[in-house]
């Protein structure tokens, strides 16, 4: 595969993100000419895209294509890695988040994240969900209880755990743990939810539950999900972006991208011929 986006004739002069965002709400997340380097190697190459509000946007592409790295730019989790250098702009809710004046902690309270492997704290189920609320300064016991219950209901976990809220979260099954992590993330009502392959470590039944949940949450949250699973992207997302070797190859409505991709590379990937 030696095709690069910039040299591909079909792409000449087209603004991919404008294309994708047409007919959708105004962009919640926007990147402009984003380059990211790990030391000397470039992980993201000139990414410009707009993620519309209250839809599910899926990032797909083979391993190492930069989709997770891009996701982690949106809440600045890449800051934790040494030797990361970034060029270009990332706007969240219209604000440049790499502006040195921006409070990263506040940004992360507004942009929730769910990780590939479920990572509940070694605390009780209740304390896991309450953790973020306590950070926000919620102290009253009844307030905490109400909001924990609400989040657990939203995450479709309440029925299963209401009797053992004060048992350790580590006793839950893998799928339950991941839904707990989602409940924990949405408890503090972030506008945006980033999901980094949230179902890749789960069995098909648990995966199904997570997918249902994502579709329900779309009412309230702008969701960006990185996934390896093409069917999953097709099932749950409204928009899909395909990345390859750090470049954004194609971005558009999921239906279009899967049924009528404009670039051969995308077609080969979504039909399973490489990746």
């Amino acid at each position: 595969m030696s095709i690069t986006v910039n040299s591909h004739p079909a792409l000449a002069g087209r603004d991919l993100s404008a294309d994708a965002a047409r007919n959708a709400g105004h962009p919640m997340i926007e990147t402009r000419g984003l380059n990211l380097y790990y030391g000397p190697s470039q992980a993201l190459k000139h990414i410009s895209l707009k993620v519309p509000e209250r839809v599910v946007t899926a990032f797909i592409g083979p391993s190492g294509c930069g989709k997770s790295t891009l996701l982690r730019c949106f809440n600045r989790m890449n800051d934790l890695i040494d030797n990361v250098r970034l060029e270009g702009q990332v706007l969240v809710g219209g604000q440049e988040i790499y502006d040195p004046e921006i409070d990263v902690i506040e940004l992360r309270k507004r942009v929730g994240m769910v990780f590939q492997r479920s990572n509940p704290f070694p605390k009780t189920i209740f304390e896991n969900v309450a953790y973020g609320l306590r950070l926000l300064g919620v102290k009253s016991k009844s307030d905490l209880q109400d909001r924990v219950e609400k989040s657990l209901r939203q995450a479709a976990l309440w029925e299963e755990v209401q009797d053992r809220l004060h048992a350790s979260a580590l006793g839950l099954s893998g799928g339950q743990q991941q839904r707990l992590c989602i409940a924990r993330a949405i408890a503090i009502e972030p506008g945006i939810l980033l999901m980094d392959e949230p179902a890749s470590a789960l069995d098909p039944i648990a995966t199904g539950k997570i997918e249902e949940l994502i579709l329900a949450l779309k009412q309230d949250f702008t969701i960006v999900i990185v996934t390896h699973n093409m069917q999953q992207a097709a099932r749950i997302s409204d928009f899909t972006a395909f990345f390859y070797l750090g470049e954004l190859v194609e971005y558009g409505r999921t239906i279009t991208l899967f049924t009528n991709p404009s670039i051969k590379q995308t077609e080969e990937y979504v039909t399973g011929r490489f990746g």
Partner: peptide, 27 residues
């Protein structure tokens, strides 16, 4: 302590010391 705990705490908007004090130290 698994780094994922720290990451989860930071992603929820903890400061580094909150993550260290409230999540990592108890674990």
């Amino acid at each position: 302590v698994p780094r994922s705990y720290t990451q989860a705490a930071l992603a929820l908007g903890s400061t580094r010391w909150q993550a260290a004090w409230k999540v990592v130290l108890p674990a």
